[in-house]
């Protein structure tokens, strides 16, 4: 039974990582859709979000089943708690990616060159954060998880810069109000994804050490 439980945990971990990989793909496509005129790309992001939603429910159901049937302790308990929390953050990241893709369908990013440049910088950093968080989750690597936090500050700074630039150019951007709101929304969602990604990194630290590092100054 113990060997069976270890197998089930391993399968759950693989399933959670497959879901993470799917969310990474969706985020990649969502970022591309902002600068692409291909409407199909944005629609694909929306469609793939349904797969993420199904996986989220499946992973959560399995975590609850394993908790109920096996009452795990120690590292097994931490893994299940972490899987449940990471599952939630991944689903929210996919939702943010959908928001970005939906905005991208209407956004005329070329009319906002300064803001476009900032979004162009944010996207790869947020994707890099998610990659690092997922990788550290897969390999249970505290050092890898810690790398995520520094990038969050860069994303926050870029987002702040973008908001300030929209405010500074408000009178000029009156003609581009819809696009301005869209680009703000895209940037806001990227910033939210960065937050969810740091949540994952914090959960990885809990998984590895049992230490809860949320709400601590870094």
């Amino acid at each position: 039974m113990t060997a069976h439980f270890v197998d089930l945990l391993d399968e759950l971990r693989r399933r959670s990582l497959r879901m993470a990989s799917l969310v990474e793909d969706i985020l990649h496509e969502a970022c591309d859709s902002v600068f692409s005129s291909d409407d199909g790309l944005a629609r694909r992001v929306v469609a793939r979000d349904n797969d993420v939603d199904r996986e989220e429910v499946a992973v959560e159901t399995e975590v609850i089943r394993l908790l109920a049937l096996y009452q795990p302790v120690g590292s097994d308990l931490r893994l299940l708690c972490t899987a449940l929390k990471v599952n939630n953050d991944l689903e929210r990241i996919a939702d943010c990616a959908v928001n970005i893709a939906e905005r991208a369908r209407h956004l005329q990013i070329e009319s906002l060159p300064q803001q476009a440049e900032l979004v162009r910088q944010m996207g790869p950093i947020v994707r890099r954060m998610l990659r690092a968080a997922v990788q550290s989750y897969g390999t249970q690597d505290v050092a890898g998880a810690n790398k995520v936090f520094a990038d969050e500050e860069i994303v926050d700074a870029l987002y702040g810069q973008l908001v300030r630039s929209v405010v500074a150019e408000a009178s000029r951007l009156m003609q581009e109000m819809a696009s301005s709101l869209d680009v703000l929304s895209v940037a806001k969602n990227l910033e939210r994804i960065a937050d969810h990604t740091t949540n994952i990194a914090e959960d990885v630290i809990f998984l590895c050490t049992g230490e809860i590092v949320r709400h601590r100054p870094r």
């Binding site: 439980f5 270890v6 795990p72 302790v73 120690g74 590292s75 097994d76 931490r78 230490e211």
Partner: peptide
């Protein structure tokens, strides 16, 4: 609460998790 969530010793970890 610590022994059953974050034991410090690997032998404790292995025992409580049934390894």
């Amino acid at each position: 609460s610590l022994i059953f969530t974050t034991p410090r010793n690997k032998r404790t970890q292995d025992y409580i998790t049934g390894r």
